[in-house]
Nucleic acid binder design. Structure first.
Lengths: 347, 347
DNA sequence: TTGAAAGCGCTAACAG
DNA sequence: CTGTTAGCGCTTTCAA
């Protein structure tokens, strides 16, 4: 207010004061200001207090871009995910952000809409933005993108999957293995005519692993799926796909995730089929809504929050300790609810 | 591979080559490189091609932090939202990111968990990160945060609300007005004992406006709510709150949003109450799942995607044209579904 | 403990 | 059209 500004129309000066202003005001060098900003012990209490006062008076805000340029670290993480529109990704990213923030890192987020080309483009942008670490989903990506990632040396964690053979660190769970207890449960409950409603398989290793895992486990029981269909991830589309699938008369429909299962539930209802009496329906994810459906949905719980949290923690630890990111294998858990209760009259 | 590096253990050199390398390789100045990078017309085709070749050969990536420092623009937007865990916010942010990206801006995201203090802190961080524009939710924030926002000159849009008196630009809808058609519909269907299950009101102008709007419109019809309760945003908590509310015997429960309404639906089912015969239940948002519930949920549709898209577009336009952000008023729409069908025997 | 000075990688006048 | 020259705001040796 009382300052004389040489040029009052300077446009994008957001923070207002710069470090030089603070230094001048406090009667010290910018180096000292920088030191107190970064909590260096090499500052006398006197200087520190003068600087802190100046910072307060000037409402000084450090300029992160300049800091990044000087330190070659951005204290920023990135996340490239298929969509925020699926609750399970939203939950994972939410936890990832929370943990990253808690550890002093901001988060860049980008949505690929399940498009591999777009994903590659977004990853590249993340590198340009100088993120210190990157969260990706799954292991399905082209060689070019992969190579860029490796050659850039950017620390990176692929979540929602766990594969020993993955080219990058995985922080997630084994999608194929997750299906085994579910299939066992279904078979033990007397279900024999199992249909599978998978998510889009192209470019999606998680969806493929879940399908493969289900088929493989059925085979262990001497069974084969009575029908297999693929659907987009939306309740409406899944409902349509399930309608056709139900016509072959399965006594169980194993869905690729809860959203798809919700659609299948709606389709069964529309077809006048009783769940679980006529047909069992199961999902994967365990969304909050799944437990409150009528009937409540049997599903496989995915540790989305823990995954997000652990990924952020591991990424940041790897950065700090200057070491590669380690893979972390998380577990899933079968949650049996009414939508798959024992078929009346089953063995 | 064939290059001789003086120091092969240089740690955080991500992009690898710098602009100087490109310039040298192409036999031009860095200024020229910069020009082709930014699509300046002041470059000969010959130079442009040489530079482009050099960029390709060196796999050069521009360093955004340096660019931001030099241009005083980050081509970055920020979003501070309560949570990603609510599908309606996730949808809005998803669209916001998409549009921002389409217009060349990356997105910083931060989650406040509905904590106003945390929100202020996060806004400050966004300013430090140098975002060019900021997306906020609602108008409920402390004077300090507001002042910082205004004094920083940062361009900012508050979504999910539209209030003529708002201190910052609003890109959203009138939460109170949105409830009127819903109340009218309920009353016209013969409902008289209306209960309200609101979201948390403290620090949430949208929740308060919805409650106030409902009460006001009921008053226009000469009615008063038979009960009013507040609940956290989760199906489970809403279910508990609804259980108590249903005991007073309302013939309609107006919920603050769809998530709460889903909980109320579950509570009614658990209490053996028929929906809509015994009690009507309504929400706000129109989540995809709401149409597929049994019964399908009557709700007020919020234009979350359009809001996100328009907010990004307006923010970026305001930045480009160097003008303040304009408010945009969007509409909502009553969606009548079975959960509120005419009460049997109503007038 | 402190300050001076040299950049970090890029853009933006300003001459030529 | 193109190169030269200053920085953008901050950190970081290196001396003092």
């Amino acid at each position: 207010m009382t300052e004389i500004k040489p040029d009052s129309s300077e446009p994008p000066r957001l923070g207002g004061a710069t470090q030089i202003d603070v230094a001048r005001r406090a009667g010290v060098s910018t180096a000292t200001v920088s030191r107190v900003l970064n909590g260096s012990p090499l500052v006398s209490r006197a200087s520190r207090e003068k600087v802190e006062a100046a910072i307060r008076e000037l409402a000084y805000m450090p300029h992160e871009a300049a800091r990044s340029l000087a330190t070659r670290r951005s204290r920023t993480l990135g996340a490239v995910i298929p969509t925020l529109t699926n609750a399970i990704f939203a939950a994972g990213v939410n936890a990832f952000e929370d943990e990253a923030r808690r550890r002093g890192h901001a988060l860049f987020i980008a949505v690929s809409n399940y498009d591999p080309v777009q994903e590659g483009f977004l990853i590249r942008q993340m590198v340009e933005r100088g993120v210190d670490g990157l969260l990706l989903v799954g292991n399905d990506r082209g060689a070019e993108g992969l190579e860029m990632l490796v050659s850039s040396g950017l620390r990176c964690a692929c979540a929602w999957a766990y594969d020993e053979a993955a080219p990058l660190a995985n922080i997630g769970f084994d999608n194929a293995a997750a299906m085994a207890p579910l299939v066992d449960h279904l078979v033990a409950s007397g279900r024999r005519r199992v249909a599978i409603l998978a998510g889009v398989l192209a470019g999606n290793d998680r969806a493929r692993a879940r399908l493969d895992g289900t088929v493989a486990r059925l085979a262990d029981h001497g069974l084969a799926p009575v029908a297999v269909a693929e659907t987009l991830y939306s309740i409406r589309r899944a409902k349509e796909a399930a309608r056709a699938l139900l016509e072959v008369g399965p006594d169980a429909v194993v869905c690729g995730n809860d959203v798809i299962a919700l659609g299948a539930l709606a389709a069964a209802r529309a077809a006048g089929l009783g769940v679980p009496d006529d047909v069992a329906i199961t999902g994967v994810d365990d969304l909050p809504i799944s437990a409150e459906m009528d009937p409540p949905l049997t599903t496989v719980r995915i540790p989305a929050e823990e995954m997000g949290r652990r990924a952020a923690a591991e990424l940041i630890a790897a950065i700090k300790e200057d070491r590669p990111v380690s893979s972390i294998r998380l577990g899933t858990r079968l949650v049996v609810r009414r939508s798959s209760w024992r078929k009346p009259g089953a063995s």
